[in-house]
Design a protein around this nucleic acid. Structure first.
Lengths: 242, 242
DNA sequence: GAAATTAATATGTACATACATTACTACAAA
DNA sequence: TTTGTAGTAATGTATGTACATATTAATTTC
């Protein structure tokens, strides 16, 4: 069986089902509009109840990844090209979901002294070094984002970690640190020398700038992240209700 | 009983329950952190099954309006209350809050035929005219945003309204149309001739571009709004929790 | 051949039920 | 005072079942 579910695992079945559906979604044939197996059959194959399967599907429908249609079936939502704000997929996962393979152009990890702003956010003194990570990423030979991240020393990162793994997974698995709250500020800027160079664009070109403050469960500061996106390569979507 | 559900109504019970929860959420005491009735009891009071009630609660939890906690209960997510409602301040209110007085530079109102995209969003034919509003606003003698808005003919705007009043107030008071859902896309662009001219910047300068789809209670399309903000004059903030 | 009818098939709604897990409370033991 | 333990109250997980509804596809009728 290609897909299967472990009934003995402590991980809830609907979560397993959700993960499984996500990997199905990532597959090319479903990306191209092929219908997923119908609920009754799929539930039978996975040996879970239809209710449980629907719980998993519902979540993805809500996220906008799947679309249901009566008498027809359920398929991947092709219209959803842009990302949802409250979905916490990491950058690479997000891109993978859209069939874009990410290439890392640069990856520098160093220890630096924080400036005033950073020390203030982390609630530490400026003589305590923090881990800084710089990263340029993009598709094929075209970089489109330049990230700078600072991590709170509390986490316990050494700098020798495998930063090619999804970041939040790394933090969650290895350092039992879970990012639960993020405050972001988005604005447009003109690229300065450094950024223009990293993104291979001309000085003064537009970039989307995202500043991100990430907190853990206890609302303690975790990460300070700056992202410079080449214009038109990134669309930020927000949905709000009152 | 204050809250109740009509079992004879053709509207699904879980939808009725959802609406009911929304009105509970709107109440002050719950806004202030009071726990909702527990699921078992509430289901009993409403005479629906716990499963059905959970279906309704789940949706609101997904939306981030409610937060569940084991052994404690379910309550309104206070973090979203503040930031979300902030999001819904109108432009001039928002600016007033920051001590900036807004000046209107241009205000054009015309009737135009919608293009394909707009007609599709409004779910109307391309031969039905819609109201278009263009606006340049800023502080003292410096314009910093160029808005283009299209309004659904259903609303009943004539074009002779006083558009200097706050927009959402106008719609709510005079046309009993309440905007409840907005989907936004934010990206960075280079200004073209038209935009550069409106904002008095040079061609190719960075602008923050915000595309906004606004819906009413019934999720029917209301307004399509394009906003071009001069770089550094506008920061978009988002807060999200998982 | 066109229009109306019927059947089939997928998701949609709803219930009753059971046990698991989490985390708070209170009390007892060390 | 601290630590352990049992009880309890809430949400979390999961199943089986039944019928409703919408939409496509096939069939019959005109």
């Amino acid at each position: 069986m290609k897909y299967s579910i472990d009934h003995k695992s402590p991980i809830p079945l609907h979560i397993q089902a959700e993960e499984l559906l996500r990997s199905m979604i990532a597959e090319e044939e479903f990306q191209n509009g092929k219908l997923l197996p119908n609920e009754v059959d799929l539930a039978k194959v996975l040996a879970i109840s239809r209710t449980t399967l629907r719980q998993a599907i519902n979540k993805l429908v809500f996220e906008g990844l799947l679309i249901r249609k009566k008498r027809t079936g359920t398929k991947v939502n092709q219209a959803t090209v842009s990302s949802k704000s409250n979905n916490w997929l990491s950058f690479s996962q997000e891109m993978k979901l859209r069939g874009i393979t990410i290439k890392n152009f640069e990856l520098h990890v160093t220890w630096v002294y924080p400036d005033e702003i950073l020390a203030n956010f982390f609630e530490i003194k400026t003589d305590r070094k923090v881990l800084k990570m710089e990263r340029v990423r993009g598709r094929s030979d075209e970089p489109f984002v330049y990230f700078i991240s600072y991590f709170h020393p509390r986490i316990g990162l050494t700098g020798d970690e495998d930063f090619k793994r999804p970041l939040y997974e790394l933090l969650e698995m290895e350092y039992s640190t879970v990012a639960t709250l993020s405050k972001e500020e988005i604005s447009a800027h003109a690229a300065d020398d450094i950024i223009a160079n990293k993104l291979r664009i001309t000085n003064g070109s537009p970039v989307l700038f995202r500043k991100r403050f990430v907190f853990d469960q206890g609302e303690r500061p975790l990460e300070y992240n700056l992202g410079y996106y080449k214009a038109d390569s990134f669309v930020y979507t927000v949905e709000s209700r009152r």
